[in-house]
Write a protein that binds this DNA or RNA. Structure first.
Length: 491
DNA sequence: AAAAAAC
């Protein structure tokens, strides 16, 4: 255990496996699938793909655990499509196209993304797929289901709707996949999941995939699997070693300034900022927007149309910041995302692993910054325990935000939204703002840009580039907050 | 302390 200046998290020094990566074309796959894989630009398999695909091809149930961003979707969809091509369902006439494979995901955006992948791999085959999720018109989904699909990708609630409306029949399902399986098996989803599974044949192949499996969920999962094979790569619940993880001591008032300063310092092109609540996320997004950052918000109180627009704009690079709840924590594949910020420490340590897994995907590097207040000690200790790494808490020097500024903005918004009241009883108003004041009618945005940005001063003060000049390693988080000792030092 | 997933 070292106390020297070190990054927030010790680098992953675990021995890398030197096995040469196997190529997809060494697999016994239908040429139509191999062509689609090649079209996608993939040549060699990731470790989870190399391990899981042959086992799925054997028809075995699989619980697959692999780090974020290592291609779990391909690891189950390619071999499933192969099995569907090879073992045609002879009990039903091919014209009827019964649902043969069902993939369940915990968020609409993730279901959509998985469906895109399945379509991509199935494009040269006759196998048809459709995705159904809530928040959008049911009719097109119904029409597609009635026309017949072999692969159905869904979120639980909308699927149950379709089942009840008799838009689809699931008694011919041969393959079931739970993507983000530990989430699908958690208490919030379990009742819906159990109902859905009750409509499926008992004899089937079931696949569970996630980056995180707690021991309890692992045990629970056994009851949904038959003689399963556990496929794990590296250590479970791990974060990618290419992600630089920082934990910074902050106060609620400092958090936005710290994020803005790091964005500038590191010249970060794009980032996701995670918050714990929908309201907090909505407010935070507005705040960044006012600061002139191109920002989109993504949370469950937005319409599905808005959600898709936010995510699309972010993926296309039209916005710099995506401020999101944990709806965006899992599975979403955003190419080359350079950074993730945890404005709030997530309530579940597992969600930390998933959130920061949006960056550093497919071997790319990434930065993950978590802002920690005094009340977060327990949560940080949980994360430390889960990822089995030592977390140190850094301090960050930031230019204080100017309180006068905030006050003027609030006054102004009251003036604007509350015009009748103001006209009715001008005496109740705070005396200060008069139309003679040159600042009075100025929009907030304009005056905001008049301010020399805090990072400008910070940069001038220190010519050294990079975060390290502003972040100073502090004591270990456990020591700082007086939490329980993480691990006794051998004896 | 929350979020997600159906209308």
């Amino acid at each position: 255990m070292s106390d020297t200046a070190s990054p927030s998290v010790q680098p992953d020094t675990a021995g890398a496996e030197p096995a040469p990566p196997a190529r997809f074309d060494t697999l016994p796959l239908d040429p139509k699938l191999l062509r689609a894989v090649a079209d996608s630009g993939y040549l060699t398999m990731t470790p989870i793909q190399a391990k899981a695909i042959p086992i799925v091809l054997q028809g075995r149930d699989v619980m697959g655990a692999a780090q974020t961003g290592t291609g779990k979707t391909a690891a189950f969809s390619i071999p499933l499509l192969q099995r569907m091509l090879k073992h045609e369902n002879s009990s039903v006439s091919p014209a009827r196209h019964p649902v043969r494979a069902l993939v369940l995901a915990p968020t609409r955006e993730l279901a959509d993304q998985v469906a895109e992948n399945v379509k991509k791999y199935a494009k040269h085959t006759h196998l048809r797929s459709v995705v159904v999720f809530g928040g959008v018109d049911m009719k097109p989904q119904t029409a597609a289901l009635k026309a017949g699909v072999e692969v159905l990708i869904a979120t639980p609630g909308r699927l149950l709707d379709h089942i009840e409306a008799k838009n689809c029949v699931l008694n011919q399902v041969e393959y079931v996949v739970l993507d983000e399986a530990d989430r699908m098996l958690d208490i919030g989803f379990l009742p819906d999941l159990q109902r859905i599974l009750s409509f499926l044949p008992k004899a089937r192949q079931t696949l569970l995939f996630s980056a995180t499996f707690s021991p309890e969920i692992k045990r629970l999962a056994q009851s949904y699997l038959q003689d399963p094979i556990l496929v794990e790569t590296a250590r479970p619940n791990q974060t990618a070693s290419t992600v630089e993880q920082r934990f910074i001591s902050a106060t609620d008032d400092d958090k936005r300034a710290i994020i803005k300063q790091i964005l500038k310092e590191r010249e970060i092109r794009q980032a996701i900022v995670f918050g714990n609540s929908k309201l907090g996320v909505a407010r935070l997004a507005r705040s960044f927007e006012r600061d002139g950052l191109r920002t989109a918000a993504l949370h469950g109180d937005k319409s599905q149309d808005e959600r898709l627009k936010s995510l699309d704009a972010f993926k296309r690079g039209e916005v710099d910041l995506l401020v999101a709840t944990d709806v965006a924590a899992r599975g979403l594949d955003i190419a080359d995302l350079p950074a993730v910020f945890n404005f709030d420490v997530p309530f579940n340590a597992e969600d930390y692993v998933h959130r920061i897994g949006r960056t550093g995907r497919a071997g790319a590097s990434g930065l993950a910054v978590t802002l920690v207040t005094k009340s977060d000690a327990r949560l940080v200790a949980d994360i430390e325990k889960l990822i089995k790494r030592t977390i140190t808490l850094d301090t960050f020097e930031v230019e204080p935000e100017r309180p006068r500024f905030e006050r003027r903005r609030r006054d102004e918004s009251v003036e604007r939204e509350d015009r009748p009241a103001r006209a009715a009883s001008p005496a109740l108003r705070t005396p200060a703002p008069s139309t003679a004041d040159p600042f009075f009618n100025k929009p907030y945005e304009a005056s905001s840009r008049d301010e020399p940005p805090a990072w400008e001063k910070a940069k001038a003060a220190s010519p050294v580039k990079g975060l390290s000049s502003y972040i100073k390693p502090k004591r270990q988080v456990a020591a700082l907050f007086g939490a329980k000792k993480p691990a006794p030092a051998e004896g």
